[in-house]
Simulated assay, not measured.
Amino acid sequence: MAVLPHIAPMLATAGSLPPARDEPHWGVEAKYDGQRAVVHLPGDGSVLLRSRAGHDITAAYPELHALAEQVEGPAVLDGEIVVLDERGRPDFARLQPRMGLAGAPVRAARHAAHDPVHLVLFDVMFLDGRLLTGRPYTERRHALEELVAPGPRWSAPASLPGHAREARDFTRAQGLEGIVLKRLDSVYEPGVRSRSWIKVRHVRTVDVVIGGWVPVRGRPGGPPGAVLVGAFEGGGLEYLGSVGTGWSERERTDLARLLDIAAEDACPFTVRPDVAGARWVLPRLVAEVGYTTRTRAGRLRHPVWHRLRPDLAPGDGGP
C-alpha cells in the first residue's frame, strides 16, 4: 500500500469576472455548494476521505467507498461532496444531516440508502508516486479526466477555458451557486487562499423585515451582531434567517439606535426562531440583503447586509 501525502486543499478567493480579453487564460468550473473533501486512494481497494480541516469523514459517506474499485491509485484527489435535487442541483440542506455522521456509520448507511451523495472531483494533486501540485492546472485537469470515468456517485465535470460569461449566465439560469475561475497556468497551492482561483457567486437581493437581533458575541449590552429577518406571508412574519455581515460600523451604530426605538417584548415571527439571546423589535424596519440561494425550508444562504430601505413599508418587503 502506498503512503500518500497529506495535502491541505487549495482555497479560492471571492472576486469577479476577468476582463473579456483575459478570459482565454482562465478555466471555468461550476461552483458546488457542499462539503470539501480530499480523497486518498492508496491503490489497495480502500478510500480515505478527509474534510477541509483534515478530519477523517470516510464513514459518513459509505456510497463513495466504491470509488476505490473504479479509480486506479495511488492518488490524492480534490473534490466536493454534494446531494443533488431532482433537477441535478446541489441541495445543501439535504447534505447537512450527513456531515456529522463520521462516528455513526449505521445512521450514515441509512441516509445513503434514501438520499445518496455525489462526489464532484475537480483536481488531482498526487498520482502514481508523483506530486502534481507544482504542475499547471491544465496538466492536472488532463490527468484527472484520464483517471476518473463518471460513476454512479462521482464525476469530474468539464472545465471550459475562455467562456466565463457564458458559464456565469448558464449557472445562474440553472439556479447554481456560481462559478470558479482557475488560471490555466496556475500551480496547486495547498492550504492557500489564492488569487489563481476566483469564486464568483450569484448574489440575489431581497427586501426583508427585521423582527429581532442578537448582540455581538461576548457583549450582552453591546451593538447588534446580527439581525433576525423575515417576510410577511399568509398574514404572518415568516423567519428567513440572520444577517450579520456586510455593514459598516456607522451602519451598525445607526441600526442599534433604530432597534432600541422599536424594542418589543413579544416575538413577531409566526414561529419563534431558536436563537439564543434574541431581542425582539416591532416589525417596522425594512432592509435589503443579498444571498446566494435558499434552503429547502426557505432560509437565505450566505445572507449579506446591503442597506436599510426607509422608503419601503414592511408589507412591501419579502421575496
Rank of each mutant, 00 (worst) to 15 (best):
residue 4 L to H: 06
residue 5 P to R: 13
residue 5 P to C: 12
residue 6 H to V: 15
residue 6 H to K: 14
residue 7 I to T: 08
residue 12 A to H: 08
residue 15 G to M: 12
residue 16 S to D: 14
residue 18 P to C: 05
residue 22 D to Q: 14
residue 22 D to R: 13
residue 26 W to H: 11
residue 28 V to T: 13
residue 32 Y to E: 07
residue 33 D to V: 10
residue 33 D to R: 14
residue 38 V to F: 02
residue 39 V to D: 04
residue 41 L to Q: 08
residue 42 P to G: 09
residue 43 G to L: 11
residue 45 G to D: 03
residue 50 R to H: 06
residue 51 S to L: 08
residue 53 A to V: 09
residue 57 I to M: 14
residue 59 A to K: 11
residue 60 A to M: 06
residue 63 E to N: 10
residue 65 H to W: 14
residue 71 V to L: 12
residue 71 V to E: 11
residue 73 G to H: 03
residue 74 P to V: 08
residue 74 P to T: 08
residue 76 V to Y: 07
residue 78 D to F: 02
residue 84 L to K: 05
residue 87 R to P: 00
residue 89 R to C: 14
residue 90 P to M: 10
residue 92 F to N: 09
residue 94 R to N: 07
residue 106 V to Q: 15
residue 109 A to D: 00
residue 109 A to K: 10
residue 117 V to L: 07
residue 119 L to D: 02
residue 120 V to I: 15
residue 120 V to W: 01
residue 121 L to Y: 04
residue 123 D to V: 06
residue 126 F to N: 05
residue 127 L to Y: 11
residue 127 L to W: 13
residue 128 D to N: 14
residue 128 D to M: 10
residue 129 G to S: 08
residue 131 L to N: 15
residue 135 R to I: 00
residue 135 R to E: 15
residue 136 P to I: 06
residue 139 E to K: 13
residue 139 E to F: 04
residue 140 R to V: 01
residue 141 R to H: 14
residue 142 H to K: 15
residue 144 L to C: 06
residue 145 E to V: 13
residue 145 E to K: 14
residue 147 L to S: 10
residue 150 P to T: 05
residue 155 S to H: 03
residue 161 P to W: 02
residue 162 G to P: 08
residue 164 A to I: 02
residue 166 E to V: 13
residue 168 R to C: 06
residue 172 R to I: 00
residue 172 R to F: 06
residue 180 V to W: 00
residue 180 V to G: 05
residue 181 L to V: 01
residue 184 L to T: 07
residue 185 D to I: 04
residue 185 D to Y: 02
residue 186 S to L: 08
residue 186 S to E: 05
residue 186 S to G: 07
residue 188 Y to D: 04
residue 189 E to C: 10
residue 191 G to W: 04
residue 195 R to A: 15
residue 201 R to A: 14
residue 201 R to F: 06
residue 203 V to I: 13
residue 204 R to I: 00
residue 205 T to I: 03
residue 207 D to R: 12
residue 208 V to Y: 00
residue 209 V to A: 01
residue 215 P to N: 07
residue 218 G to Q: 04
residue 218 G to W: 00
residue 221 G to F: 00
residue 221 G to L: 05
residue 224 P to Q: 06
residue 225 G to W: 03
residue 232 F to G: 01
residue 232 F to Y: 14
residue 236 G to N: 09
residue 237 L to I: 02
residue 240 L to H: 03
residue 242 S to H: 12
residue 247 W to E: 07
residue 249 E to A: 14
residue 250 R to S: 09
residue 251 E to N: 09
residue 252 R to H: 01
residue 257 R to D: 09
residue 258 L to S: 12
residue 259 L to I: 09
residue 262 A to C: 09
residue 264 E to W: 00
residue 265 D to H: 02
residue 265 D to S: 09
residue 271 V to S: 13
residue 273 P to V: 01
residue 281 V to G: 01
residue 281 V to S: 02
residue 282 L to W: 00
residue 284 R to I: 00
residue 286 V to C: 12
residue 290 G to T: 05
residue 291 Y to F: 14
residue 292 T to N: 10
residue 294 R to K: 11
residue 298 G to R: 10
residue 300 L to D: 02
residue 305 W to G: 08
residue 306 H to K: 15
residue 306 H to V: 14
residue 307 R to A: 11
residue 307 R to K: 13
residue 313 A to V: 06
residue 315 G to I: 00
residue 318 G to R: 08
